[in-house]
Design a binder for these strands. Sequence first.
DNA 1: GGAATTTGACCCCT
DNA 2: AGGGGTCAAATTCC
Length: 242
Amino acid sequence: MKDAMATLATELDGLLAMARELEARVDGDQGAPGAARELCAALAASVDRAVRLAGRDGNAGGRASVNGQLRSRKAAAAKVRTQVRVASMQDLGPLDDGLSWRKYGQKDILGATYPRSYFRCTHRHTQGCAATKQVQRATADPLLFDVVYLGAHTCAQAAVLAGAEQQLPPPAAFGQEQQSPPEGVQWPAEPVTPFSFPSSPASSWCQLTGSYGYAAAGGGLGVDMELEGQLDELFLDLSGYF
DNA sequence: GGAATTTGACCCCT
DNA sequence: AGGGGTCAAATTCC
């Protein structure tokens, strides 16, 4: 547990450093999309690892419920909550993050222009995977999607993905050409390109959408609020560059 | 025919 | 009572 938290801290520190570096580079050189992309991908990969760590370990050590309330069905899902904002350059369908999701509901949300879609893991019944996610188009920008992940994947598919990701080269290697990534992933040559999401969620979202909004804390993430605020600001700033 | 999606109804919480 | 989340039957898709 201590190791995981230490790793999390290291990842987040690196995240901040990379974000600042990215800011500096993009600020000084408008025509440097390649370098910006590299850092952006590294940033996203780091966030992804941090979130995964927090998701795994936050359960036992974190706040599992709000105000100590017991919630029959919602209690389990409230343990891990990861929120990201994803931008789609084109009006395409559901975002494929490499995992199998099955839509089980859709609701019109008060005050929201677009309905919220509810997804759960395809292997919910076969493997008891309790992961769910909610996807909602942002009112302000229809090309932005707010995606909230609730619960942790416990299915075999998630384990395979997690294992494959650990074998990937260091984050800085992302964005390089001639990368010949696994699973036939094709990185876009231009910022705006029709896309299909490959297996690594954070890096591909960043690469392809230019906006990895934020990975914020719900119950499971024990991220310091001040740091969280800094991350929020950084992501907001960075999103403006793309 | 099986799997995924849609959609109205139901349940729980505030 | 109203809103959010889930269920499950009906429908669509492959």
